[in-house]
Computed example of a mutant assay.
Amino acid sequence: MKKRMISFASLGLVCATFFLSCETKDQAAEEQLDVALETPAKIISNAKAATLFQNDQHTRLSQIGKANTSFKDKAIHFDLETLENYINRLETVATSKNIPITGASFVFGADANGKRTVFLMPSTRNADLDYQESFTIENGQFLTFKHVDSSLKPQNSSQNDENLVFSTNGFLSFNEATSLFNNYQNQYIQPFAKKVTKDYYTKAVWYSLDEFKGYINYLKKQSDKHHIAITGVDVFFGVYDIDASLELKSNAQTIFLTASTQKQTIVNVTGKSLQSLSKQDFFAKDSKETNESLTFNEGHLSPPPPRG
């Protein structure tokens, strides 16, 4: 009888171990699935981020006499909470004014001293030209901000009464945004166009509202999970490789986003800084590794190339 009891007990232990093992495996699989679902599709590896950053230095700044631009002047900082509030505001405006806001574009600009910047504008799809066109509203008037134009004309009267154009220095009027946009054309696109002929030159990068929200939520979760004080998003100009497989993105200007603390720009959950990464031999690293990355890219470049 004792032997039979021992046998049943042993069988019970085997079964318990089996089911616990299955449960552990299922739990691990679920956790991996959760991580995969929570990681935005446009998160890129640190190697890609460093490549974009260095390409910008070598193929743009160095080519137009701005090779001495400091790292500090390359970082365009947005407060994380303020950025989240701005995206939420666009959703509110879309509902209250019945405007089909599809997302927001980082529009390229430069100040009077030639320092590059970006500012955010809501976008709606231009069906005729087949691209995401930025706009703002002033004095009840809907004003488009056409990236397809080489320069924009200021309005006779302009004020940021709706607060739809968001910059690192607060909200801008249409005319203030126009001035930055035209400065970028004169100081960055025209000098480069004299050396490299392209069908079009990037003037903005678009993301959907869901992509913005997904990235912000991702940074907040990574901040809590890894005990990193992420307080903002830093935007950097980048340039894609000269690669025929990239088609229209080959040698194209873009921007990429990554996290920042109060002290520095960081590109992964270990707190690695972009500045230190770009100085190292990052090419040997696995370019597909994104599990620890905090960097966001692959936005839609604007304007589109001219139709043939």
Rank of each mutant, 00 (worst) to 15 (best):
23 E>F: 14
155 Q>F: 05
1 M>E: 12
58 H>W: 06
197 T>R: 10
12 G>M: 08
83 L>Q: 05
51 T>A: 09
215 Y>I: 01
295 T>D: 10
219 L>W: 06
22 C>I: 14
127 A>E: 10
247 E>M: 15
62 S>E: 12
46 N>G: 10
245 S>I: 06
303 P>N: 08
254 T>G: 14
141 Q>E: 12
134 S>G: 12
193 A>W: 02
214 G>F: 04
37 L>E: 10
12 G>R: 11
46 N>T: 05
75 A>G: 03
182 N>M: 05
137 I>M: 06
216 I>H: 08
146 K>M: 10
274 L>R: 14
227 H>M: 08
212 F>W: 15
293 S>F: 03
175 N>Y: 04
158 S>E: 06
270 T>E: 15
7 S>E: 14
140 G>K: 07
249 K>T: 15
221 K>A: 13
200 Y>C: 04
148 V>S: 12
131 Y>W: 05
146 K>H: 12
308 G>Q: 12
278 S>N: 12
181 F>G: 07
112 A>S: 06
80 L>C: 05
253 Q>N: 15
174 F>I: 02
171 F>P: 10
267 V>G: 14
69 T>L: 03
280 Q>S: 15
299 G>T: 03
81 E>R: 09
240 Y>V: 02
254 T>A: 13
48 K>H: 09
39 T>M: 02
36 A>T: 06
41 A>M: 05
291 N>I: 08
116 R>C: 00
41 A>S: 10
246 L>S: 14
128 D>C: 00
249 K>F: 15
228 I>A: 02
49 A>K: 04
291 N>M: 11
237 F>N: 08
43 I>H: 06
